[in-house]
């Protein structure tokens, strides 16, 4: 989980890494955009070998939700 959050935080340019906790609702962050979403999807596909549809990412509220989704697909 910690490693995933580290990888997740690397996809953001301006947001501080301390913001990212398992309970963080990342859609509400100011820097969030569809481009950040694309970068996250690409990171997940590259590092975890799981392809997530953009709609599934939209349905994830917190980082923990996304982590659980990846775990269930692996």
């Amino acid at each position: 989980m910690e490693e995933f959050i580290k990888n997740f935080a690397n996809q953001w340019d301006e947001t501080e890494p301390e913001v990212f906790t398992p309970e963080c609702a990342f859609h509400e962050l100011e820097e969030w955009s569809s481009l950040t979403g694309l970068a996250i999807l690409n990171m997940v596909a590259k590092k975890y070998g799981v392809k997530i549809a953009p709609m599934e990412l939209k349905n994830c509220v917190t980082i923990a939700d996304l982590y659980n989704l990846i775990q269930s697909k692996q």
Binding site: L35, L38, L41, N42, A45
Partner: peptide, 17 residues
């Protein structure tokens, strides 16, 4: 990859997807 803006920048890369 995705190009965007003026002046143009490469903003995303998605070969894994």
């Amino acid at each position: 990859s995705m190009a965007k803006g003026n002046p143009m920048k490469i903003v995303a890369e998605y070969s894994a997807l």
